[in-house]
Computed example of a mutant assay.
Amino acid sequence: MSLYKTKGIILRTHKLGEADRIVTILTSNLGKVSAVAKGVRKTKSKFGSRLEPFMHVDLVLYKGRNLDIVTQAEIIDSFSGIRDNFDRITYGSAMLDLTNKVAIEGERDVALYNLLLKGLSVISGVKKNFRLLLIAFDIKLMAISGYMPKLERCVVCEKGLGAKMHFSFQWGGVVCDDCKVSDRNSIVVTPAAVETLSRLLRRPLLEAIDMDVIARTEDELYLLMHDYIAYYIQARLKSRECLSQLACS
C-alpha cells in the first residue's frame, strides 16, 4: 500500500461492520474518493467528529486494494454554523447530496470542489434566503457539469424571446412559443424567472442572498431547477424530497 495526502470535503458516510465507516470525500486533486475509517464509531476513536459530513479536512490515506484507508484527519474548517441551524443543515445537505451525485470517482474537478467549498462557507454564515442560495448553487453546479442552460435566445431556432416562452429540459434552455410544440419535455417559464436565473448564474454565490426576488419567482425557479436536475441526473435525491416536504408543511 502507498501513502498519499489530500484535502477534502466529507460528502457522506455509512456504516461498515461494527466499528468502521465508509467515508465519501470530494478531494481537491483526486475527485471523489471512497475510503474506510477504521474504528471511527468507537467512543475513543482517534478521528472524533472529524470525518462527519460538511467537514473540510486535511487527510492522509493508504491506497488499498478495494477501498483506501484513512489514517489521519485534521480539520481545516468544520463549518460549525451549518450544524447549529436546522435550515442550514437541510439546505447544506442538499448541496452535498447533489455534489456526491455528479462527482465522478477518481476524476479531478477543481471547479466543483471550489463551488462546494464556497457554498458551504456562505451557507454557514447566512441567516436568510437559504433557498435562493441553493438555486444559485444548483445552476452553477449544472453549468460546470456540462449542463449550462441557454437563456438568451431560443435554443432551437436562435430567435429572440418574446413574452411567452418555455424551458426545455431536452434541449437545455429556453425555447420560444413556436418551437415548444415539438418538445414534450418543456414547461412554461416567465421572463422574470429567466432573467433572475441568468443573474444567479453570473453573480458570485454570496451575492445571491442579497438579491431582491419576489416569492412567486423564487417558487418558480426552485421547481424549475428541481425538475432540470432530476431530468439530467435521473435519480431521486433524499435531501430534495426533504426540502419539498418542508415547503408543504
Rank of each mutant, 00 (worst) to 15 (best):
H226C: 04
G48T: 04
Y62S: 10
V122A: 09
L59F: 05
V110K: 15
R12H: 13
T13H: 08
H56V: 08
C176L: 13
V126H: 03
S121M: 12
A111C: 06
E220Y: 10
G39K: 05
A235N: 09
M148Q: 15
N29K: 07
P204H: 06
V70W: 06
L161F: 03
K238S: 14
R203E: 09
A111E: 14
M142V: 03
M211A: 08
E195Q: 09
M95W: 04
D97N: 11
G146I: 08
C242V: 15
C242R: 15
L237W: 03
E105S: 10
E241T: 11
L206W: 12
R50H: 09
L141Y: 02
R131S: 14
Q72N: 15
R50V: 08
R21S: 05
D183N: 12
R108Q: 12
S93R: 10
R83L: 05
V126D: 00
V213H: 03
D210C: 07
W171E: 11
G17F: 07
I135E: 03
I82A: 07
R83M: 07
S34V: 09
K32G: 06
R83C: 04
D77K: 11
M1I: 09
D138G: 05
L120H: 06
V174G: 03
K118S: 14
V181L: 07
G125T: 11
L11Y: 10
R203N: 13
Y147D: 00
R83A: 07
F54A: 08
K118W: 11
R131A: 13
K42M: 06
K118D: 15
S34Q: 14
L197Q: 01
K180Y: 14
V60N: 00
E158A: 13
L116H: 06
G162C: 10
R153P: 03
D84C: 13
Q72M: 14
K42P: 06
D183I: 13
S239A: 15
S145A: 15
Y113V: 01
V156M: 06
R199C: 04
R88L: 14
F169R: 06
L141C: 05
S239E: 10
K238H: 13
K180T: 12
G119L: 04
L200E: 02
T90G: 02
R12A: 14
T90F: 02
D109L: 02
L134A: 01
A208I: 01
V213N: 02
L206T: 13
V102H: 01
F167M: 00
V23I: 12
S28F: 13
Q72K: 15
L133Y: 06
H56T: 05
R83T: 09
E105P: 00
H56S: 12
L133C: 07
L96E: 02
M225I: 10
N129Q: 10
G92T: 09
D109Q: 10
I10S: 11
F167P: 00
F167W: 03
P53I: 02
R240I: 10
